[in-house]
Computed example of a mutant assay.
Amino acid sequence: MSHSPIRKDKTCLNCRHVVEQNFCPNCGQENTDSRKTFHHLFIHFFEDLTHYENAFWKTIRNLLFKPATLTKEYLSGKRLSYLAPVRLYIFISFITFLMIALFPGESKPIVTSDKNHTKSQKEIPKNIFTGDLSDLKPGAEFDSFTKNVDSIQKFAPKEKKLDGFSYWIIKKVKYVKDHNTKKEIIEKFTESFVHNIPKVLFIIMPFFAFFLWVFHNKRKWYYFDHGIFTLHYFSFLLLMFLILFIIQKLIGLFGEDNPLTFISDIADFVGFIWMSYYFYPAHHRFYGETRWVSFLKSVALFFINSFFILFLLIIYAFYTFLNLH
């Protein structure tokens, strides 16, 4: 509830209706001073998202421990007792971004060495001029190839030279490997992935709802229904990630070798199991199908969405790698 003083003027600023109480009976706008302090705006932001404390905690409790309850309640018309699905997701996303900003990844000095030295053409692997990228073997030979990519473009026969895109990719890979150790690449990628999980989930949501629409009765269920289910399910996933992230970072404040790290490990294990299982009871309770039908559809949807998510993550991983410094 807002604690701002009520305006002396009884005319609603929104619809010009006469207001005798705190809220306009015509449009519902609160009759308070329109000029607010920053403190009020910050508090009002949380109040607007959470409505009242009871509704907020009731929503979070049901979201975490009662799969599909929020979706069924919302679609049945009981909407004032809980946070609206979109506001719920936005609120959790906001807190997630805030926590990530408060607990950034540790920045470590990058140890580099001068790996660039002049090589004669004899030192270039023999298959550089006699084949294409598919001829290369993984490991040391590929490393040697990346180190000599400039020589390839300069001395190799025209038909054996790389195209512009391949050359750019190889140069980028070489730059990343020259300026980062394997451990640093993994750490940077992990940090970037964590920071972008909310964005990745947001991109996936409409596709997730589409697959639900494909698997269910089109006359009984609208895409809107699947969308609300998806919003609640992804809000759960994001909230679980947020909880595990906070636990990990708080325990990490005591050092990497502190005796409390086992709590973080247990939380991660339990959280992963619950996130993996959650979709099945949520699907069964919401769509009301038999357990076996719901189980089979859940498994099918799990693999389809996992494949789709994996495809997006591969693209994302490639993009992230190319943007490492």
Rank of each mutant, 00 (worst) to 15 (best):
S81N: 09
I243A: 12
G252A: 13
F103W: 04
I309W: 15
I266N: 14
T50P: 12
S298A: 13
V86Y: 15
T290Q: 04
K122G: 05
P109C: 12
L296N: 12
V214F: 15
I185P: 04
Y175V: 04
G77C: 05
M240T: 04
D268E: 15
R79A: 03
W221V: 09
K220T: 14
E53S: 08
S235T: 02
K147C: 07
E123V: 01
R291Y: 10
S2W: 04
V19S: 02
E191C: 08
Q21H: 09
F97V: 11
N22E: 14
N323L: 14
L253M: 11
E53A: 06
A140H: 10
A140Q: 12
C12G: 02
I128P: 00
P67F: 00
C24P: 04
S34K: 12
D225N: 14
P109M: 13
G164V: 00
L310K: 05
D132N: 14
L83C: 11
H284V: 01
H325R: 00
N180V: 10
K220I: 12
H195Y: 13
I186T: 03
Y175F: 10
I204K: 01
Y277M: 14
G77K: 02
I204V: 10
K158S: 11
A101Y: 10
Y222N: 10
I203Q: 03
I266P: 13
F302C: 08
F155A: 05
D135E: 11
S81M: 09
F307V: 01
F321S: 04
N116I: 07
I266Q: 13
F193H: 09
A156N: 03
